[in-house]
Amino acid sequence: MRSFIEKEKSTLMRPLSQGPEKAQLIRQTIFDALDEVSAALPDEQEIERSDETILIGASGVIDSLKLTMLIVSIEQKIEDAFGVTITLVDSNTLSPETSPFRQVRLLVQYIEDLLKAKIDG
């Protein structure tokens, strides 16, 4: 059951973060988290801020440590931005075949779906 504050936050956030606006905010959050992760990488491995960036898999740009950093950072930033706690770690998200971390575009969609389920119940 959601707390009173959680409900209030989600009510307040809803008008500001519908549809394309919400996707853009999520994308920005992911890019900010990618910048944080880049800062802890050697310079030549800087991660491109693009929908098309492939994060994990054969041509992915981040290893397991960086993936962890990215997950934790995104979860915190989403909580700050939307007032909703999400969990990005489960067997699907860590599987190379099904993980939304395969590409930034997939991750935006995945988080959007998670938020929709949380906020809209």
């Binding site: 944080e36 802890a40 397991s64 440590l65 962890t68 950093m69 997950i71 934790v72 950072s73 979860e75 915190q76 770690v89």
Partner: peptide, 18 residues
């Protein structure tokens, strides 16, 4: 409050937030 992050620890053996 986020100084120590159990999630980081269990996933990567990093006890702290970045």
């Amino acid at each position: 409050k986020n100084s120590f992050n159990p999630k980081f620890w269990f996933l990567s053996k990093v006890p702290y937030d970045l």
